[in-house]
Nucleic acid binder design. Structure first.
Lengths: 110, 110
DNA sequence: ATATAAAGTTTAGAAAATAAACATTACCTT
DNA sequence: AAGGTAATGTTTATTTTCTAAACTTTATAT
């Protein structure tokens, strides 16, 4: 039978990372503090997760200034947009595709 | 401004648990070994996760037999179906709703 | 009897997520 | 000018969560 569920990208299947990507997909770019506000996350968590997304090539960061005047802008990449589409598609399929009914077990009386 | 992202149910936002629930939503009930097959999970992981879902009231288990003849059937509950719908709706909103553009920063020159 | 297999469960180790503490620089007060 | 507080991130330590390996129990085959 070999039924297979749609593949779920684990990098995007995380609440904060997903919100970051959805925000950037809609805005194209946003700065660190704004992402922090709208995702309702702590700065520490946000810092870790945008680095993860950057390392995956899903976003790029532009950092200017240091100390108190530092300013970090994130911009979604083409690859990031594609990954997000694919993830969304996969989920949609998961919800709509259904699962095959279990095959009958062979029994002595069969 | 107080924008808020849709709420994501963390219990359902896990690949294996989600697959279990999607399968049960489609089949209404399925036995342990069948879930194991179609979710492509190990028995250990499956055991843990269905217990988690049961404790959340999202599914019920009927266990018969012991040892080699044991047989566990899982059935989705009304609450489970509702939670799945809500989760799906939330995700859908997340993808479609968009994010407000950042407000201008007040500047001395403004 | 002994070995092997089947169906689950427990639990120990790995991985991931989160927030608390830290670093750096600017601005404000006296 | 010196000291305190605030702003913007980053590091790192803790907690939580996942995952699979090891175990339990009973049945079936040799």
């Amino acid at each position: 039978m070999t039924f297979k569920f749609a593949v779920i990208n684990p990098l995007l299947h995380n609440e904060l990372r997903l919100k970051i990507m959805v925000a950037l997909d809609s805005l194209d770019s946003a700065d660190f503090m704004y992402l922090c506000q709208i995702t309702d996350s702590t700065r520490g968590n946000l810092s870790v997760q945008i680095k993860t997304l950057q390392e995956a090539g899903y976003l790029e960061m532009t950092k200017t200034g240091i100390g108190r005047l530092s300013h970090t802008v994130c911009r979604i990449t083409k690859g990031g947009k594609e990954a997000l589409r694919t993830y969304e598609e996969g989920l949609r399929r998961l919800f709509t595709q259904g699962v095959p009914v279990q095959e009958e077990k062979k029994s002595a009386s069969g």
